[in-house]
Simulated assay, not measured.
Amino acid sequence: MRWIVLAALLIASATPTAASPGAFVLSSTAFANGGTIPKVHECTSGGGHDPGKKNESPPLAWAGAPATAQSYAIVMRDLDNANLIHWVIYDIPPSATSLPQNVEHVYRPSVPMGSRQIYYRGSASLYGYQGPCSPSTVNTYEFVVHALNRASLTNLNSGSSTQTAAATITAATVGSARISGES
């Protein structure tokens, strides 16, 4: 009987859980994982004028990143539209644990200092965040924070595509955490 209890304890301690202390997690004060992304974070394109839509990036915070992280990157995708990439921000310093709401739409935003964003080429052409734009359907959007093994992704620049940036980030990832929302 003692061996069965001991074996059960060993198996339980080796099984990771989503809420394990020290787990790498990503969260937002704007929406719960799997919840509805507020209109303020939706795109402003698509015809008509909705004053609630402002195309502001949501506030994001992370904890429990691998100790080996030398920088961070965030990639946002529309999972229901061929994984279309809506946002890439990278070279986020290792001391950062969050992004504020409404990161500037420029290549080098002032916050977080040193970070860079990829130019979004689509219905709106701009640097940085392009919010959900699904006027006739409800789509799932996923935000992934990547802990990277490099301090800077020097092979990326202001002309890099979102696909190139995402592939470069994936290749340098030592851990990741995600949150998704619907819009």
Rank of each mutant, 00 (worst) to 15 (best):
V138Q: 14
H105L: 10
T68W: 01
H86D: 10
S13D: 10
G128C: 05
N83C: 03
I92E: 01
G114A: 10
D91Q: 08
A7D: 07
A151K: 12
S28M: 05
I92C: 03
V88H: 03
R77L: 05
Q101D: 11
A96L: 00
W62F: 06
V174H: 02
S110L: 06
T17G: 15
I85W: 02
L9E: 12
I85D: 03
A96N: 04
L79K: 12
S160C: 07
P100A: 13
T173F: 02
T17V: 14
T68D: 15
C43Q: 09
G48H: 10
A30G: 05
A65R: 01
V106S: 12
L126M: 11
A12M: 12
V138A: 11
K39N: 13
A32I: 11
S160G: 09
S27N: 13
L9N: 09
D78R: 06
Q117V: 05
E182H: 15
T162D: 09
E56R: 10
G131C: 06
V144H: 00
P132Q: 04
A67W: 02
A82S: 15
A67V: 13
Q70N: 13
G22S: 08
A19Y: 11
S95W: 00
Y72T: 04
G181C: 08
Q163R: 07
G122V: 06
P58W: 03
E182G: 07
A32V: 13
L79H: 02
E142N: 11
R2E: 15
A14W: 01
T170C: 02
Y127L: 06
N157F: 06
Q163C: 00
A165S: 09
A172L: 03
P94W: 00
S160A: 14
V40I: 14
R121M: 11
D50F: 07
L26A: 08
G22Q: 06
S180K: 11
P132I: 06
S71G: 08
T36L: 10
I74V: 15
Y129A: 04
V174Y: 01
S123Q: 14
I169Q: 01
S27H: 04
G114H: 04
P94G: 03
S45H: 09
S95G: 11
A8H: 04
N55G: 08
P21Q: 09
L148T: 06
A14T: 08
R108E: 14
V5A: 14
T17F: 12
A14N: 07
V40W: 03
G34I: 07
G64E: 06
A61Q: 11
S176R: 05
S98T: 11
E56A: 12
G48Y: 05
L6K: 13
R121A: 14
D91E: 11
Y90P: 00
V75M: 06
